[in-house]
Design a protein around this nucleic acid. Structure first.
Length: 257
DNA sequence: ATGCCGATGCGTCATCGA
């Protein structure tokens, strides 16, 4: 089974690219982030016509997450993280699909740092870590995937020294990611490719993509039930080179059914 | 060194993203 995550940066602006990518790569499950669309404007019919069931948690202008599945029922389990009833940003959705329990997340960017946005990022991270702890109690396969807005190590950025003070790379952010992993999660890409340069995002400007000036910030975290089922993982890098594309590329894993 | 690009909204610019 192939599971993918893709920050589309606007689902309506990205629809042709999204539909082409779905058709060409046929993922079984897809987690989307940055829909930038209220629920009523999400292109539900086009997604259904492409052969996917879907659940979404949209929001006007910003954020927004969705889970798509081909030929499988999606049982929604929640669309908020515990810990802050005041938080209205659409950044999380969780569902059961067959034997898999999947959380789709869009972690806050956090810039400029320090500041209130960075505080929100770290607080959101804490709440995610709390939910992740609960999910580890479930005795079944769990996947936490999406745009983490975290550059985990120096290997994951084209020029680390330029990102030292950035919210994606600051010590607090990396420590929060480390703490999450230490609960018992596996970073699927790094498990399979411990040393390779792998990016999932390239800025729109400064010819970042053609210079391969990228970041690895979209991640797949797997619990121990998936340790022996991970077959492969990768980034559909070429999609980043398409016309009218997102600044992120889709990331995927293949697991044993 | 730098939102330089791109998307959204009730908009002709501000705000967000990373």
């Amino acid at each position: 089974m192939k599971i993918a995550t893709y920050n589309v940066n606007g689902i309506n602006a990205r629809l042709p690219v999204l539909l082409r990518w779905l058709k060409e790569t046929k993922p079984d499950v897809v987690c989307l982030q940055e829909l930038k669309s209220p629920d009523e404007k999400i292109p539900k019919q086009e997604i259904a016509d492409a052969g996917y069931n879907a659940i979404w948690h949209g929001q006007k202008r910003w954020n927004g997450v969705a889970i798509l599945a081909r030929d499988m029922e999606i049982k929604e389990l929640g669309r908020t993280l515990p810990g802050d009833p005041e938080d209205v940003q659409s950044r999380y959705i969780e569902a059961d699909i067959n034997d898999l329990h999947i959380g789709c997340l869009y972690l806050p960017n956090g810039n400029p740092a320090p500041g209130p946005k960075f505080d929100y990022k770290l607080d959101w991270f804490k709440r995610l870590t709390g939910r992740a702890k609960e999910l580890l109690e479930i005795d079944r396969p769990v996947i936490l995937t999406g745009d983490y807005n975290v550059i985990p190590t120096e290997k994951d950025v084209y020029k680390p020294e330029r990102w030292i003070d950035d919210a994606l790379f600051r010590p607090e952010t990396r420590a929060a990611y480390e703490k999450l992993l230490a609960q018992g999660w596996t970073d699927a890409i790094r498990k399979l490719y411990p040393e390779e340069t792998i990016y999932t995002f390239w800025d729109y400007f400064r010819n970042a993509y053609s210079r391969n000036a990228g970041l690895r910030i979209d991640h797949f975290l797997l619990n121990e039930h998936l340790n022996d089922r991970l077959l492969d993982a990768g980034v559909d890098k070429s999609v980043r080179g398409w016309e009218k594309t997102s600044d992120h590329a889709p990331v995927w894993i293949n697991i044993k059914d």
